[in-house]
Amino acid sequence: MNILEKERKVLELEKKIDELDNEVLINSLKEEMEKYKQNTMTNLNAWDRVLLARHQKRPTSSDFINYIFDDFIEFHGDRLYGDDASIIGGIGTINSQVVTVIAQQKGKNLDENLERNFAMPHPEGYRKSLRLMKQAEKFNRPIITFIDTPGAYPGLGAEERGQGEAIARNLLEMSGLTVPIIAVIIGEGGSGGALALGVANKVCMLENAIYSILSPEGYATILWKDATLASKAAEVMKLTSYDLEEYGIIDKIIKEPIGGAHFNNVATFKNTKKVILEELYELNKLTNIELRDTRIKKYRDIGFFQRFNYDNLGGLKR
């Protein structure tokens, strides 16, 4: 039984509770429900987390921004081609510090999703984000990014306008920025499309978010030639927050309410805001050069391999 089926059961129980008017019965049912949630929804497997990360009701970037930042002002356009609705960017304040916010925005229904292109950015989206980041560097304000995308859009126009170049340029420029960057993965972190906003001093991740090189479906198709093995692939790919923290790919896990962020949006936002403020406090202590150098070093050290020391092998000296 996967998480969505369990959730349906909980919702049925809640509906039942609403219909009742006997207080004793209500309380006992509520207790039962909490127990059920505690027992079945706390120890999730990787596929459950994939389903939660893609959940229709999961809060989107704009929900986070509205709660966490005061006076958010959105800016549009990359000054080169157009404005990409799948990435929103602008400035706002958090604890009265001005910050630049850049986020990938999913829609809540089909119409919104069509407008937002299911949060799959085109090159102009990445170039807009780069423009805003450069602006942030000029005015020495921190950058906070929210990542929630299935991946960069693979389409004709995107290729014509240089999707690869746009992502590469973002990676290069983000490595070199001299202001604090905090990335928060709130839902799906899909491939290079996510990484293009994710080269940060601190990478935080919601408990049930995922971050991977491609979708579990794609992984199963490429390696096992069978997309229906996606749940098995999710298990193998190590895409959950706990696995990634163990590997040192992300720095911090943001706790979610039992059953996923959408069970209690406000609690999720509060946790996120707390973590952002903590990280920001630490990063504000560093100088501009330190910020840049620690960020480069952080990514320089990621890799899983071994090496012989050829230098110590006398005859093999190269």
């Binding site: 990676l171 290069l172 490595s175 070199g176 090189i213 491609l214 790919i249 990514y299 890799g303």
Partner: peptide
């Protein structure tokens, strides 16, 4: 694909190499 998220991170690593 076989090295998962580690491969993805190499994109950031090599780009930083170009920058330096």
């Amino acid at each position: 694909m076989q090295e998962g998220i580690f491969s993805l991170m190499q994109m950031a690593k090599t780009s930083a190499g170009v920058l330096q």
